[in-house]
Amino acid sequence: MGDHDPETGGAQPMVRPTETARWVIPVLIPLAAVFVAYALLVPDGPAEAARSVAVAVAWGSTLVLALVVTVLVVLGGMAVRRGPGGGRRRPGSLRTWLAVAVVGYLILLTAVSGRMAPLPVFDPLEHHWQGKVLDLIWLAILFGLLRRWARTEVGLRVTIAAGSARPAAITIISVFGFFVGLTVLAVVLDPSTVAPVSAERIAYDATIPNLTEELIWRGAMLAVLDRAFGTPRVVLGAPVGWGIVITSVVFGVGHGVLIDLAGGWSVNLAGGVFATVMGLALGWIWARTGSVWPAFLLHCAPELGVDVGMLMTG
């Protein structure tokens, strides 16, 4: 329905987030609503909500800085490889930096969503569900306003590329099995590492949190950067370009440089390296299948593998 233009008699032109600003303000509505609700429902709410947003912006700005630095390194490397007088399209253009600005805005959105002070209704829960639900709502607004882009380039569709089902399934099952085995081995070697696995933890590892990360990082961000940098190479059947590298590096920084809800900073180098490698794998399966859903399943595989391994040994 939304793809048909009665004036032209055909499909509407593809409208991407780099080509229109109509989505920029609407995606802020759910975040503003939670801010107002927190201010009304919690004593000293306005000050606490403002503090949590400031913490989130500080952390998000760190990721945006990592994004800009990574893009500059990539552009520098491409310029050196191309050399003077190269005939290729120069990626360091206004269009490239507009794509970077869109990705930076998406980073700040998810940073604020995930670190805004939670409403009292979420207090009994072990995990920070509010942030992930907020991500899902503003993503729904973004994809609702840019429906054709969401289906065609983000991969928000059920169908996958021909011939991609088998390699995707093998990858997902292998990663899941590896983490089940690794967890069982770790507990056998050191029984003190066993940890209880609650129903909430399984639900958290299998649903909204991983889905929203894939919709943001592999879906929206990678689609925007692939459009700017192109996908000139084919790796194991997947068309890829510098976008997969850029998103994976920043994804790794986001899991390596941490900040809690109280504003405490920490560094987890191993987590950052693992997230970077996983980012490459998730970007590959997204590009290979043309759909965000296999990437979502692959994202769930390590965490559910650990959960199942713990359940098996507990």
Rank of each mutant, 00 (worst) to 15 (best):
A79V: 01
W265Y: 05
V188I: 15
R151G: 07
L304A: 03
A11K: 14
V27I: 00
G10E: 15
V292C: 04
A281Y: 06
F143L: 09
V15D: 08
A165D: 12
L298C: 01
Y38M: 05
V121D: 01
R288S: 01
P302E: 15
P30A: 06
H127G: 03
D205Y: 14
S192E: 01
P191M: 10
P26H: 01
L297F: 10
V194L: 15
A195Y: 08
W59F: 06
A32P: 06
L106F: 02
A228P: 00
L280N: 06
A162H: 07
T96V: 07
A37P: 04
A47T: 14
V15P: 05
G163M: 00
F296G: 02
A58H: 01
P294D: 01
A33F: 09
L63A: 02
P43N: 07
V306C: 08
M310Q: 10
V57F: 07
G45C: 12
A169V: 08
W284F: 06
W23S: 03
A111Y: 00
V273D: 05
L134I: 12
L304S: 12
G263L: 00
V34Y: 00
R16V: 08
A281W: 11
A165E: 13
V24H: 11
G243I: 11
M78S: 08
A223F: 10
H255K: 05
G87P: 05
P17S: 06
L225M: 09
F35L: 13
W293G: 05
G230L: 08
P13W: 12
V306M: 14
V267H: 13
A99F: 13
L98F: 09
C300M: 11
M14P: 12
V24W: 07
G256D: 03
S93Q: 12
A32R: 07
G309Q: 00
E303V: 07
G237L: 04
A56R: 01
A49V: 13
L261A: 10
A223W: 08
P43T: 07
Q12D: 13
A223V: 10
A262S: 10
A54M: 12
V277P: 00
L156W: 13
E7Y: 15
A199K: 06
V74P: 04
G76N: 09
V69F: 04
V68I: 15
L109P: 04
S113A: 07
V292F: 02
A111I: 02
I173G: 10
E7W: 15
E7M: 14
W242N: 02
P232G: 10
D260Y: 11
G241S: 02
R147L: 09
R95H: 11
V277S: 03
V235T: 00
L189G: 14
G181R: 01
G230F: 04
R81F: 15
V102M: 00
A238L: 07
G263Y: 04
G271R: 13
A58K: 06
R82M: 13
V158W: 11
V306S: 09
G272I: 08
H128S: 10
G10H: 14
A21P: 12
G155L: 03
S291Y: 04
A275T: 06
V27P: 02
G131P: 09
S174M: 02
D5T: 08
G10I: 11
L258H: 10
I285A: 03
P30G: 08
R201M: 13
G114H: 10
